[in-house]
Design a binder for these strands. Sequence first.
DNA 1: CATGAATGAGCTTTCATTCAT
DNA 2: AATGAATGAAAGCTCATTCAT
Lengths: 201, 201, 201, 201
Amino acid sequence: MSPRNIERDQQMREIRKDHILDAALQAMAKRGIDSVSIKDIAREAQLSIGNVYNYFNSKDEILGEVLSRGQIEYGKMITSYSMLDIDPRDKLTEICTIWLNTSINWAFTIMLESIRTNETVNPEIREAATRRFTENLKPIAEIMQQGQTANVIIDGNTMQLALYFVSLIQGLTLQMAPGYEIPIRIEPENIIRLFLSTSEH
Amino acid sequence: MSPRNIERDQQMREIRKDHILDAALQAMAKRGIDSVSIKDIAREAQLSIGNVYNYFNSKDEILGEVLSRGQIEYGKMITSYSMLDIDPRDKLTEICTIWLNTSINWAFTIMLESIRTNETVNPEIREAATRRFTENLKPIAEIMQQGQTANVIIDGNTMQLALYFVSLIQGLTLQMAPGYEIPIRIEPENIIRLFLSTSEH
Amino acid sequence: MSPRNIERDQQMREIRKDHILDAALQAMAKRGIDSVSIKDIAREAQLSIGNVYNYFNSKDEILGEVLSRGQIEYGKMITSYSMLDIDPRDKLTEICTIWLNTSINWAFTIMLESIRTNETVNPEIREAATRRFTENLKPIAEIMQQGQTANVIIDGNTMQLALYFVSLIQGLTLQMAPGYEIPIRIEPENIIRLFLSTSEH
Amino acid sequence: MSPRNIERDQQMREIRKDHILDAALQAMAKRGIDSVSIKDIAREAQLSIGNVYNYFNSKDEILGEVLSRGQIEYGKMITSYSMLDIDPRDKLTEICTIWLNTSINWAFTIMLESIRTNETVNPEIREAATRRFTENLKPIAEIMQQGQTANVIIDGNTMQLALYFVSLIQGLTLQMAPGYEIPIRIEPENIIRLFLSTSEH
DNA sequence: CATGAATGAGCTTTCATTCAT
DNA sequence: AATGAATGAAAGCTCATTCAT
């Protein structure tokens, strides 16, 4: 009855929502983005199907939020790297390594595309996903800028370079999705090398 | 015995199969690979659903053949480029330009991943898709090799470079899928520049 | 144009119809009565689907005629036995042996029931099947009568005995359908023994 | 945690499963085993089609369970009779009467054959059906043995006699399926008489 | 007569979502 | 808040039948 309890209830609600989103991501990784069902998610979260709907309005909303969370987290990660006081080349290498090593990331790449091209998904969700993607290019562009200033990164439009960098990594995560066995090593240092300027080669 | 021209019937059959595969690709581009239904494909091909099954045994078979056709066509294209007697840098630029300008190519990228990670798809189809992908890296690697010999392409394992090149392009095609509007120009010359060696920068 | 040709055409037609009915029976034995399709029958007969419809109006008609032919043939067989001048007990033994040894007969038993209980089948076809079944009891009843006169067959209503005799054999053919392996011998002599009168035991 | 009474829910679930199986049997009796559809079963059970799938995984599973239930029930019935301390002849008469009077039993006979010969049905289900059939011959054989000991039943291999007895009854149930009108009385006493030994005729 | 492409109704099955409890 | 039974729409697929050639 006290404000305290209401506040705590809200917190509990958020914790449970997060729990469901975690479960959804796990379920997607297991079953595949498009084959995952609400039942899968509920089972993974150890909740009843009906109860999941107490926290989210639809399956699409869940998928949208899973993606959103992933994008926001990724945004925070690269933003913090962009602000570090270390060699910009090391920043890129780190980002690249982290992204490629997190086995679930291919799922985000697919999810992004899946949500975007699925006409049945709420347009707002789709638009938001695209907007965040573009927004997340900026910290990378900022790192590129830092590298250009330090004369270690190839010149050119930094947003364009950021787009190439991100696209390259996303393309590679697709190759790393389960099932594939591309018999070629993927080495972050070599990837970064593509973006290094003349004097550094 | 037969009032029909058997040979002509066979030809017609092949033409119609191709027609259905074209329609399937169009439908996928419109609805998204995982949401596309046999109904969508039939509608696009202006055939009844049942009749589609006169030409293919299953939806998966159709998807597999669409992908296969695309991969084979792409393989021929890059192989012919690899054998031309022109500057390797121009070869890459041309390949990049063609691939990015063909608006439907993002669909192949998704299809490849979709087929690969979908456990319900016939393992043979999945394996074949992966094998052709790997096979198609070789002509690109060959071009990289030519460039290295001519001292215009960055050094390093050529298959690895080919994988990065293809992943980058595939990643970019994803950004070009309908719905998105990334406000950033994509310029093949700048993409190729990433793979040029020191002395060329 | 001559009557001769018309007559011969009619004969040819009958021969082809018979050929299709043979094929249908074979196909049923292979695929099962309810799973058999017109395509199966056409393939077995080495005809096109459309051409099958030049000889019969529907699949049900084919099934009905296959059953009819089988019943008529069986009727002829038992009628001729009923008229032979040999020990009635041997007649029954022979009939029993022949019926159980013809591997396809279980199919007729099923077909009879299938046609009878299938409401979508033309009522006339269903009625005819039942009528022929009843009609075919009479020669068996006649043999029972002969046996009773000769004091070798159990007394009682001969049509009832015939029904029991036929039901027993039909029941046994079901046990002999493919897939089963009932590890019990079936011996015609022992079956007939059930119908022998006191003094013969 | 739950506002539901879990134990009661489980009971309700079992009751509803039984209800569906009852409905399936009724529907089969009406439409024929091979023509019966999930739609028919759902209508008979007054449930939606989708809801039927909340209780069973497939149509085959339903058919398998209907048969299984019937066979188990029948097995219990004859086993209890086999253990009674009454005249073995009366046991057979009773079993025969009960079986022939239960109007639905012809459906089991067909179902057994149908499941057995249908290659698309799960082999385990088919094997189990055959096994239970064979198992259910044993109590009958036991009764035959009792009769032989008491000198009232014809001599011979008891399992073989049991098979003949059951086949005869099964054959007769087929004649009693709806639609037929065989104008011949079926009298259990007369059926049993076939199995009585010399001295009893 | 001969063909098999074409159709459309029907099948089994799945699943997001709702709702009585 | 919590449950899972219930629904209904839609999926993939099959097949008897028709029909243009």
